[in-house]
Nucleic acid binder design. Structure first.
Lengths: 192, 192
DNA sequence: GTATGCATGTAATACGTTACATGATTGT
DNA sequence: ACAATCATGTAACGTATTACATGCATAC
């Protein structure tokens, strides 16, 4: 029986495979990457990355070569195997489904919607104001990062980052428009 | 000692609390809601909802009143307790943080970025085309839902839904622009 | 000599997913 | 009579989060 390895992998697994396909890296290097770049947000905690690397190795998708044998804590550099690259490519080639699209769901909007309902327009307005200030700061941060990093990025990465900027800008515009709209409702209530 | 109940709750917990604050519902009613409306995507599977209701009850945030006592499978209707409403309001009142903002991270863009790098522009183009078609269909679906449902929605919900529509429209525009850009690169490679 | 960064990991816990399972009620 | 829908749950499994833990190298 041809033991089709159909283990399901997490997004973190694929993110790691992709990064290792660029160049071999250590677990620590991956942590730094997740901490420093606006990559879809993966936790940079050791409790997620080292177990992920361990299971990728178990599944034969990456190999580790040890450096600094002498010391007690050797540095391990990981690289994808042929099977690992194949797995990555299968994932990358699969067509987009509706489910995936929706999975990028918004936590914050849930809060906003209920805030207006449960706490009223004033609280919803406060929510939007804190959202707007965080968004404005983050958009600026992303734009700075884009200016600085995009020239040295591959086309795909650059485009993906641009969507990140665009999305947050849309979100920001929406927040400002929503603030105006809530303001109108508030005034109307005052007047009536 | 005043036992501050600082148990952390999941987004699903808060979603359920919010929905129960609108009106008392059964677990099954919640499942139907998650299945039918474009709510940030929560699983409609019993394996997530019933355990969530059970722990909310354990924590004293909801109570259950049983209907149809006679039958073997009674119907339980849940409603938030005073503590539950308080918990919900604390969550709704908290200011937005940078971390939350980023948590709405994009899975698909990771795939796209690596696809271009690992598989090349042709595969990235195929990815974008499948993305575009799914996006276009979903945007239309959302717009239909908006037209139909928004008149009977509270302002907060309506605004949140509008952001959903706007975001996906931005995403769609980006995909179309990215397709054009990848096309230019492809042609340039052919020519040179 | 002390703090910070490099570098690796484990343990406890809880949550979500998938699959399994039961049985009542309603419609055809 | 049969199918679909109502309605509720459990069990196995894997994974993420948090906190804990070790120890070297370098800079101040």
């Amino acid at each position: 029986m041809l033991r089709t390895v159909s283990a399901r992998h997490t997004t973190l697994d694929y993110a790691i495979l992709g990064l290792l396909s660029q160049e071999p890296r250590s677990g620590y290097a991956l942590r730094k990457l997740f901490a420093a770049t606006p990559m879809g947000h993966f936790s940079d905690s050791p409790g997620s990355i080292y177990p992920a690397l361990a299971r990728l190795r178990r599944r034969g998708l990456v190999t580790a070569t040890v450096q600094n044998r002498r010391t007690l804590r050797p540095r391990q550099v990981f690289r994808p195997t042929a099977a690992g690259l194949r797995t990555l490519k299968v994932w990358l080639s699969a067509p987009v489904t509706r489910e995936e699209l929706i999975a990028a769901g918004s936590d914050l909007m849930l809060r906003f919607a209920f805030a207006e309902e449960v706490l009223g327009p004033a609280a919803a307005l406060r929510f939007l104001q804190s959202l707007e200030s965080v968004l404005a700061a983050y958009v600026e941060e992303l734009e700075r990062y884009y200016e600085e990093a995009s020239p040295s990025m591959p086309l795909g990465g650059r485009l993906a980052l641009r969507l990140g900027v665009e999305s947050h800008r849309t979100h920001l515009r929406w927040a400002q428009e929503a603030i105006r709209e809530l303001g109108r409702v508030g005034r109307r209530k005052e007047v009536v």
